[in-house]
């Protein structure tokens, strides 16, 4: 069972292809491209973080600038502690696979995540286990997201490679998979490779 420390948020919106989670702490969203998971036992859903936002709690009210007379940014939060309660951080993930009865599948689960399901950052061993297969790259390449896919793919590989001793070999292997998937589009391949090399 994952440690409490790895818990990064709670599902507040879910669909077949992804889920949105709210962070417990303001600004504590996992890095872009991280592998996270949430449970709906016996199924565990894996997602890759593709977007993070921090907005006002109340949809109609936008924050206003407050620092004109303060000496530093910290001073703003110190003089108006209620601010932390008026803002919230969220992150969106793309579902890239699931585990059912301890077996990994690199395709979509039968059902979306549960609202209020806890979201955990996957520890290195689990990242390694998940990235034994590069099939998730295909889901990423074919996704329709508001962020650049090149950026997202590169970020997720940069995140994953940190779980490995031999990062270079991992990146070369991933690069080769991309080269095959993107065989018709050398420019895109070049753009991604340029963002993950050494």
């Amino acid at each position: 069972m994952a440690e409490l420390a790895d818990r990064v948020g709670e599902v507040i919106e879910a669909s077949t292809t992804g889920f949105v989670a709210q962070c417990y702490e303001l600004y504590q969203s996992p890095p872009l491209g991280s592998l996270v998971k949430t449970r709906d036992l016996p199924v565990e859903l894996y997602g890759i973080v593709y977007n993070a936002t921090t907005t006002s709690l109340e949809p109609g009210r936008r924050p206003i600038a407050r620092g004109k007379d303060e000496a530093s940014e910290e001073e703003i939060y110190r003089s108006s502690p209620q601010l932390l309660k008026l803002l919230r951080s969220e992150f969106s993930t793309l579902v890239v696979g699931h585990k059912d009865d301890d077996k990994l599948y690199h395709y979509l689960p039968p059902k979306p995540a549960r609202i209020h399901g806890f979201v955990y950052l996957c520890p290195p061993e689990e990242v390694k286990e998940f990235s034994q297969s590069f099939d998730f790259l295909n889901i990423l390449i074919n996704a329709h997201l508001p962020v650049s896919l090149d950026e997202l793919i590169a970020a997720s590989l940069r995140q994953m490679c940190q779980a490995y001793e031999d990062r270079h070999s991992f990146l070369v292997a991933a690069g080769k998979e991309l080269a095959i998937l993107l065989s018709g589009d050398f420019n895109q391949l070049k753009a991604i490779l340029g963002r993950i090399k050494g």
Binding site: S183, G184, F186, L189, G198
Partner: peptide
């Protein structure tokens, strides 16, 4: 080569990572 574009705009061969990835794929 898989993509003829590669022969027209060859990748940076001084980049060993690029060369390693392309070998056997593109």
């Amino acid at each position: 080569v898989i993509d003829q574009k590669l022969t027209l705009t060859p990748p940076d061969v001084s980049d060993p990572f690029m060369t390693e990835v392309l070998a056997g794929t593109s």
